[in-house]
Design a protein around this nucleic acid. Structure first.
Length: 358
DNA sequence: AAGGCGGGGCC
DNA sequence: GGCCCAGCCTT
């Protein structure tokens, strides 16, 4: 039983061309030095929605710091977030550590090599599950990501909207039918590598493509129009006054964000949602929120920070306080030179550049 | 099915 | 500015 889409598609030739090309052209990446399931796992989590060039230094530092499952399981979550700082999508780090602890306690520190147990781990979805099973355990499981959908939408000339969940399932079905049983690792990585290096979103280099002969989009001259993808809706801008509050000892007020939602468990400088509070009630709000009295100072500048779904517009204002202690568990007065011990989102790292020197 | 969830690099 | 990136989770 085979999909209509795959009729007249030369699967063996596609596999051979792709895999030969991959072995000859694959990049020398740090997570390709061995097949350690733990390292494959870490790399796949980091690579979610993140480019290879961005991941490389993070992967190196992470593995140096946590060489084994046990090391990561034993680590402090704040320490893990600090190591992840700047990489984004911080729930990946929290879920990874939770899942690693699960593997240590429930599976004797062996990454489960079957779809059911592996896919049940926190943060391991359909793609990551297939990637680990194929790359670390050489099992012929599909690993469909954006690259795979782009490459296959062109090769098979599929004009469905790849933003729709059901369409991704179609691609998983196609991949099950065309994946190589001899070298599923090279097959999956080969399609992704092809998507990253040749079959790129814009201006694909079809003249260099090992499967050009099998590509229906190229044959019809429509490769630039594929894949079809519906547009994401625009982000809403939220204005804040962000406060750099210091005392005479050059300590700054920081707070730990909620343990759920945006930037969970990361630290930040106080942010006043100005649409709700109003410019005239900032000191009052700070008193209510943190139990400290402040004097507002100069306006230091503006920062715009773009997320996937919202935009922060930050007005940075300096302030002073005479407090030397705070009560709240999630709020701290921290010496300027110790701020680097805490995980901050990039937006607030940028704020630190506005702090006065002394 | 749709929306929340980061950040950087490209055009 | 918009788009894309080796996606997953929650609702």
């Amino acid at each position: 039983m085979i999909d209509k889409t795959l009729q007249n598609f030369d699967i063996s030739k596609f596999q051979a061309n792709l895999i030969n090309w991959y072995h000859a052209n694959k990049r020398d990446l740090p997570w390709r030095k061995d097949q350690d399931p733990y390292k494959v796992w870490v790399s796949e989590i980091m690579l979610q929605q993140t480019k290879v060039d961005t991941v490389i230094p993070y992967f190196q530092r992470f593995i140096t710091k946590y060489p084994t499952l046990q090391d990561l399981a034993d680590a402090d979550q704040q320490d893990v977030l600090k190591t992840w700082e700047g990489l984004g999508y911080y729930s990946r780090a929290r879920n990874l550590q939770n899942a690693v602890r699960e593997v240590v306690s429930a599976y004797g520190s062996k990454v489960p090599a079957n779809p059911k147990d592996l896919g049940a781990l926190k943060g391991v979805g359909p793609y990551t599950k297939g990637a680990i099973l194929s790359i670390a355990f050489n099992q012929p499981e599909p690993a469909v990501d954006g690259n795979v959908m782009r490459v296959l939408s062109r090769v098979l000339k599929i004009e469905d909207d790849i933003a729709q969940p059901k369409v991704k399932k179609d691609f998983e079905r196609y991949t099950k039918n065309i994946i190589s049983d001899d070298d599923p690792s090279a097959f999956n990585q080969g399609i992704m590598e092809l998507g990253a290096l040749v079959c790129t979103p814009k201006s694909p280099m079809c003249m260099l493509c090992p499967v050009q002969e099998q590509c229906r989009a190229f044959e019809d001259g429509v490769e630039q129009k594929l894949p079809i993808k519906s547009k994401a809706k625009k982000q809403k801008t939220i204005p804040y006054v962000a406060l750099l509050i210091r005392n005479e000892k050059n300590e700054y007020i920081i707070e730990k964000r909620s343990e759920t939602g945006l930037l969970a468990n990361m630290w930040q400088f106080p942010m006043v949602p100005i649409d709700e509070i109003g410019m005239d009630h900032i000191e009052n709000w700070v008193d209510m929120e943190y139990g400290i009295q402040v004097d507002l100072g100069n306006n230091l500048g503006k920062l715009k920070h773009v997320f996937s779904h919202i935009i922060w517009q930050l007005d940075i204002i300096e302030a002073t306080t005479e407090s030397e202690k705070v009560i709240d568990k999630r709020v701290k007065l921290v010496d300027k030179n110790r701020l680097a011990d805490y995980p901050f989102p990039v937006s607030h790292q940028k704020m630190m550049k506005y702090m006065r020197e002394e």
